[in-house]
Design a binder for these strands. Structure first.
Length: 157
RNA sequence: AACGUUGGACGAACGGUCGCGGACAACCCAAGGUUGUCUGAGGAAAGUCCGGACUCCAUAGGAUGCAACGACGGGUAACACCCGCCGGUCGUAAGACUAGGGAAAGCGCAACAGAAAGUAAACCGCCUUUUUCGAAGGGUAAGGGUGAAACGGCGAGGUAAGAGCUCACCGCGUUUCAGGUAACUGAAACGGCAUGGCAAGCCCCGUUGGGAGCAAGGAUAAAUAGCGUCGCGUUCUCGUGAACGGAGGGUGAUCCGUCCUUAAGACGCAGGUAAUCCGCUAGAGCGAUUAGGCGACUAAUCGUCGAGAUAAAUGACCGUUGCUCUUCGAUUGAAGAGUACAGAAUCCGGCUUAUAGUCCAACGUUCAUU
RNA sequence: GCUAGCGUAGCUCAAUCGGCAGAGCAGUUGAUUUGUAAUCAACAGGUUAGGAGUUCGAUUCUCCUCGCUAGCU
């Protein structure tokens, strides 16, 4: 019975997806990644109280249009089903590796949880190592001057 | 019954739980959110190979060029599509394929072989004359050999040997007659071989084509940073303005022509924003009946509304039942595996390509039975 | 959405107007050397991306697929 109540709560609306090119670039630049034979996951922290968000990047190398749609739907469904087990306050980008056939749903759930855990560990390590970067990242959200900030970071060391 | 040929239809079904896009309604109500109801991929949505609708540029007119098409008749909004029919090739047949105008407008091509690859010529031959017996001259294109293709085929007459030289049949061409809307078919007469092939080689003839594409195009909002180049004369008029000329630009191949601008302007470079709404789905729509037509299709009447996203919705799990294959059993059955190709993005009509399987109809050949 | 180009040996590229598919590097074998490299000689290696058509004959001409690349909006 507890499982059913969890399922009732598990929703996945448009607000929990990453849509803007800006956000994608921010997550890629944070460089907290975890790989698998089938998947790659990038991860970056957002504001502390925010919900976890999912972005998908499925290239043409993966397959034809219906194969790509299949991947996106499976990953979205896995993200939704395991939403309670995923840590909040992060953005995730899921990238299927090229030439990989879509797996079954249960395998994909296991892969997703494992890789999310690894990526979040990496992200926390990066966060604690340099707190200045975190503040600069917050500024990035508001002002959206990614290019300038990255240039200054490269110039400082 | 077996083997085929052609055309068409479908392309898993039902139920439960959760989730996503859209519309409507209610509630909290600032944004937005919650609940309920309805609804939500295809025969190819694909490739983007053709043709249109629609929108803007803006006048699309002429000549040349370029591109596409090419028997004939029809269908259609249009077509490189479809239907009918003719010719050709293949198949015992049902049927299949067919870019199928012009080679006496001109240019060009045909490797190797072969004597010769096209206004003819003559290697071996055959016949004949001369002869120094080596050969030379003449006639001929029946035969040999080469080639994908050799200047009609085959038989008879004829001849020194031969030859459409003559004749019959066939092929080819011209004319006439008959049938057909026509392509064409059939028959007769005449000609007496002239006019070999390739035009998916150049080309000629005929027909068609203004350009760009929903990121078209329109509205609102937000944001930024400007810079450079070009640039009006005359006449008339009190003046507004008009005419002519010049300059710049468009007409996306060129020229003529034409159109626009000419001082709150045009063009170029650089930079910023890429957010919302409209376009956006009722249409050459779909289904049925009747009528016309061999058919593609058309007309009338009745009924009906079936996706509209934008980091882009159609999914996940479970159960039952179909269908196919394998194994066991072999009457029912049991277990396992599989259940294709593939995803709308402005919308239609085609073509092409990919497809597990299932069903229906018509027809052909062979065999068996009556 | 629109448009252009390319595909030939393991690699990089040729092949005029349609007429025997070639070169360099790489590979194999032999020679040379005490041995290796270099050099010399010989050899092998091709569905000309796939299919169909035109033609006597197609890498070449035409059409349809497949893959790759580039450009414009």
């Amino acid at each position: 019975m507890t499982d059913e109540t969890k399922r009732v709560r598990a929703r996945f609306s448009r607000a929990r997806r990453i849509k803007l090119q800006r956000d994608f670039q921010r997550v890629y630049r944070f460089r907290a990644r975890a790989f698998n034979r089938r998947l790659a996951i990038c991860c970056a922290p957002t504001a502390p109280g925010a919900r976890a968000r999912l972005g998908l990047s499925v290239s043409k190398r993966v397959g034809k249009a219906h194969v790509r749609n299949r991947w996106k739907r499976l990953v979205r469904e896995a993200f939704r089903a395991q939403y309670a087990a995923i840590p909040q306050g992060y953005d995730f980008i899921v990238i299927p590796q090229k030439q990989a056939a879509p797996p079954s749903f249960n395998e994909l759930c296991d892969d997703l949880l494992e890789l999310v855990a690894r990526a979040v560990k990496k992200a926390n390590r990066a966060k604690t190592s340099s707190e200045l970067k975190q503040t600069s990242a917050k500024d990035d959200d508001r002002e959206a001057n990614d290019a300038l900030s990255s240039k200054t970071e490269g110039a400082n060391p």
